[in-house]
Amino acid sequence: MKGISVRRPLIGLTAYEQEVQYNGNNLIAGMLPMTYVKAVQATGGRAVLITPDDPGTDVLDSLDGIVFSGGGDIDPKYWGEELHPAADVDELRDTSELMLMKAALDRDLPLLGVCRGMQVMAVAAGGSLHQHLPDVIGHDRHRAAPGTDPLAADASAFGRHEVVLQPGSRAAALLGPSLTVNSFHHQGVNDPGTFTATGWCPDDEVIEIIEDPGRPFALGVQWHPERTGDLRVFAALAEAASRWSDRGRQVLAA
């Protein structure tokens, strides 16, 4: 590394773009909860936000890794279904993120999918989602009340559950055989496409983790690690992004 200082990996975070209220303003903004930014910073990365209002994927040239963030529902037209009455789709993000996801997969950019982001992974890889989990599993315990922390001692049981992991999977090497997670979703992965499911909720078999062990780093989690103290998946992304960045520099230097 002579002559090159160690640069933090640059991690893109896909952002919301919608009407928001702050300080008496009410306007359309690109935005993301600070929990994501802090998770990237706490694990050694530099966070930049990628807003969905731009039609290109050239921004990926600048990134060492990318997080596909949580958010609204994905339009079922992408896997050939009619829209469920309970769906609340984010068309702008669907278009932008499916395009970014395919381009990121094409170049093997290290990527982490969180909640909606994991669902974008599955859909981009040819898979499909359950549109409304209560229809499939008979309960709504994967959706915590807005603004609550399901992992807090006094929180209701809604949104808090176990995940069991596939022995031998990359996710298990990272997270161990099981963990307790927080959930805020009503869609779920039905078919992970070319990804492999490696973690489930033991109560109802809902898919909680998908990965592709053939890629440098491609991991999706259905829960929200950025809202917890357990940032292992963000740390793993940062590490993969640093390796990817170094490889890129070697290619450039050659």
């Binding site: 928001v20 903004a29 909860p33 600070m34 929990t35 603004g147």
Partner: peptide, 9 residues
């Protein structure tokens, strides 16, 4: 009132 990073579109 969630701490949010944002920029007008």
């Amino acid at each position: 009132d969630l701490p949010t990073t944002l920029l007008p579109h």
